[in-house]
């Protein structure tokens, strides 16, 4: 089977609120699929239904080849999950947390010990194994949770906002682990996020979710074409008539939407800037024109969201919602 997850009109209602509204997505085996959306979009609700701890109001899904309603226990055996909120025992050590989890999944003895060692080494926490988790940093706890979710060799990994509330450096660290998991363990990963950069950097496919509905789906690049083109801006040094010829040549050669020349700068709109840029240099070289400076900008997924909904996914990095969540987490950590 080609797909790891297929949802069929998956729906969840809380009273009169439809938190997830007829979602139909297909996630290929071995890919990282991102569910991108603002706070309250229904990401966590979707994941909880797929992970069989929340019953859909309507519709169903096939996860790892099993129906979540008919064979929830088969699904549970094949998935690993890192929840949005921390779910680690803070008064136990990293090793004890892993051991308890392993026993819960039926692992034991020497095999379990070796597996714990392998995974704690993978996330760089083996030296910390005998230290109580309350002394770990937020990033270390996240890594421990990721290691824990991998104990039983799941086929599919769910990561619900894996880098929420982490500082930028730690986020990059966690990203590295996620990429490595996909590469080395050939796992299918479904992650949710409301960080555009996270979705862009990590995901093969992204579905944008808002008010419980999927409003767009595709590779990050495909999604960006919804907004329009990459814009390339070039500054050259040569005589004005030569520039005129250069501009005409570019227009003739490239599949561009517009080419403009003003104030000593050429601006052009193209579908895919990285592909076009070498061609531009080649033409310039042949005409003996020196390019002083070349810049290009691509639309972000946030622009896509803005275009589709008229709102931004988030106002700015470190909004008050994040702040409140982090406070909540800190309170938890102090216990």
């Amino acid at each position: 089977m080609e797909f790891a997850i297929i949802t069929k009109d998956l729906t969840k209602k809380f009273g009169s609120l439809t938190a997830v509204d007829r979602i139909n997505i297909k996630i290929r085996k071995g890919e990282i699929f991102g569910l991108l959306g603002p706070n309250g979009a229904g990401k966590t609700t979707t994941i909880h239904m797929l992970a069989t701890i929340l019953k859909p109001s309507y519709g169903t899904a096939i996860v790892a080849g099993h129906d979540i309603l008919k064979e929830p226990n088969k699904v549970r055996e094949k998935i690993g999950i890192v929840f949005q909120d921390m779910t680690i025992d803070r008064h136990l050590t990293g090793y004890e947390n892993m051991w308890i989890h392993g026993r819960l999944y039926g692992l034991r003895g020497h095999e379990l010990h070796e597996r714990i060692k392998e995974l704690l080494e993978f996330v760089g926490l083996w030296e910390w194994k005998d230290i109580e988790v309350r002394k770990y940093s937020g990033g270390m706890i996240r890594r421990l949770e990721i290691a824990r979710s991998l104990l039983h060799h799941p086929e599919i990994l769910f990561l619900d906002e894996p880098t929420l509330g982490l500082d930028p450096q730690t986020r990059v660290h966690v990203w590295d682990y996620i990429m490595q998991i996909r590469k080395e363990k050939n796992m299918t990963i479904l992650l949710t996020t409301h960080y555009m950069d996270e979705a862009e950097k990590l995901c093969d496919h992204v579905a944008i979710i808002d008010h419980g509905k999927i409003i767009a789906e595709g590779t990050p690049n495909e999604l960006k074409t919804i907004v329009g083109n990459d814009v390339i801006c070039i500054k050259v040094r040569c005589s004005p008539d030569k520039i005129q010829i250069f501009v005409e040549k570019l227009e003739a050669t490239l599949d561009s939407t517009f080419v403009r020349f003003a104030m000593g700068r050429i601006t052009l709109g193209v579908k895919n800037a990285p592909q076009v840029i070498p061609v531009i240099f080649e033409i310039a070289r042949r005409m003996n024109i020196r390019i002083l400076r070349l810049e290009y900008s691509r639309p972000t997924l946030d622009d896509v969201f803005l275009k589709l909904t008229g709102r931004r996914i988030r106002e700015e990095f470190g909004s008050w919602v994040d702040f409140i969540r982090r406070e909540k987490m800190n309170r938890f950590m102090r216990r």
Binding site: N73, D89, L104
Partner: peptide
């Protein structure tokens, strides 16, 4: 409150 119950419920145990 702190979610560990979910960890138990999501396992096949």
């Amino acid at each position: 409150e702190f979610g560990y119950l979910k960890v138990v419920l999501v396992s096949p145990a």
